[in-house]
Design a binder for these strands. Structure first.
Lengths: 223, 223
DNA sequence: TAGATCCGGAACTGTTCAGTTTCGTATAGA
DNA sequence: TCTATACGAAACTGAACAGTTCCGGATCTA
């Protein structure tokens, strides 16, 4: 069993090494770039999404990244740390207020969030999440990395949209922002993980019109 | 890797064997009871909840059930089938209409569903679910078994309560029953799996008052 | 071109675990 | 009591895989 990623006292080393290597020792025969890192991390995420943590082997990651296993271990001390790093380095999408849609209505904003790109991205993240679940309960670092990289970005976007709707007087100020901000993610993970059904545009629209908007006093339950 | 449970053409054999063994061959020196089955299945669920599918070893299950590994393999052809059987044989709680609370209000009914026993049971099921996720995407039988034993009972209970509320005119008939019936489960799994936070009475009450009731036109968003 | 360094590939080690086999024992029916 | 059978325990087999080691070639600097 590989509980190894569980209790690490060395997780500090990771970032430390990264910084050090990137800046120091320019005297040598070659830049100590770790040029292959992005390829390897991307490969790790791919394999993770496809096979899950337990099904993922270092061989698979190496092969997919056209690298040698040795290269992986030169850079990360274990499979667990590689995965944590891969999650942490995920490009965690749109968090900035100004990049968010602002259509004037909550429904407009929520619907505007559903772009093909977003659905694709979301599905991939759900799959990665699914692949992580067994490990998450054993590794606090991994749980935190996943929360920051996958859950928070979308949750905080939703929080902002809801708050704007409150500010403009569109919805009541005492609605349950915290829960509502993660409803769609929860339902999406449930759908992918448990029901094995696709998460598509219709699903999200149905959620907005059937749950979120009614829950803030807009939509069908009032009409 | 143990994808074994994936494509089985023999899952019929399971129940067939059960029935056959229970009734046939009373000629022998001992009833062919498979007396140890319940202990073993219970042990399997325990280990599953604690360590997940990948972490669970046949040794653990045998030890916990005070049985030998050989006994397990005499009864089930593989680890995958044992797990499927364990899930399928789970006592899937209150599904009958008459056992459900009927307090006269939707809120009363939903709150009445939250008994300490239910929370405990729910938490255990969430953990088992968490332990299954990696395998669910590879085994349709397992996915189906989990849906029937874990998801459906509660979802259909919620559907009934919502329908009753509609019938008595308490809530609008065009509310999104299908989605609302799985909101609390989705959020609970999300909370356990991803956020690693406890699922307790307050959480469920918060969900009822902050999401479900507002979404059907009752509760804070209307008041 | 020479020297240092990084990389990919491939062979290797050790462990874990699913599944098997064997054996001594307990038990229920004749 | 005798006999057939199910059982627990323990040893065993074989495969998969994390992590290591070694080497030959590529690439950059001087």
């Amino acid at each position: 069993m590989t509980l190894d990623a569980g209790q690490l006292d060395t997780e500090q080393l990771d970032t430390t090494q990264l910084d050090t290597n990137a800046e120091a020792s320019p005297k040598l025969g070659r830049k100590r770039d770790h040029t292959r890192d992005p390829d390897i991390l991307a490969a790790a995420l791919d394999v993770l999404a496809e096979t899950g943590y337990e099904g993922m082997t270092m061989e698979m990651v190496a092969t997919r990244a056209k690298a040698g296993k040795a290269t992986l271990y030169r850079r990360w001390p274990s499979k667990g740390e590689l995965v944590i790093d891969a999650i942490a380095c995920m490009k965690h999408g749109d968090v900035d207020r100004d990049g968010l849609p602002d259509t004037g209505t909550l429904r407009g904003d929520l619907v505007a969030m559903i772009k093909p790109h977003t659905i694709e991205d979301s599905t991939r993240k759900m799959r990665i999440m699914a692949g992580l679940t067994s490990m998450i309960s054993r590794s606090p670092e991994l749980a935190e990395a996943a929360r920051v990289a996958i859950v928070e970005p979308r949750a905080s976007a939703n929080r902002i949209l809801l708050q704007r709707a409150i500010d403009r007087g569109e919805i009541s100020a005492d609605c349950d922002i915290e829960n509502l901000a993660v409803v769609s993610q929860s339902m999406a993970i449930f759908r992918v993980l448990v029901l094995q059904e696709p998460v598509n545009r219709d699903f999200f629209i149905g959620l907005i019109d059937g749950v979120v908007l009614p829950a803030v006093g807009l939509g069908r339950a009032r009409s």
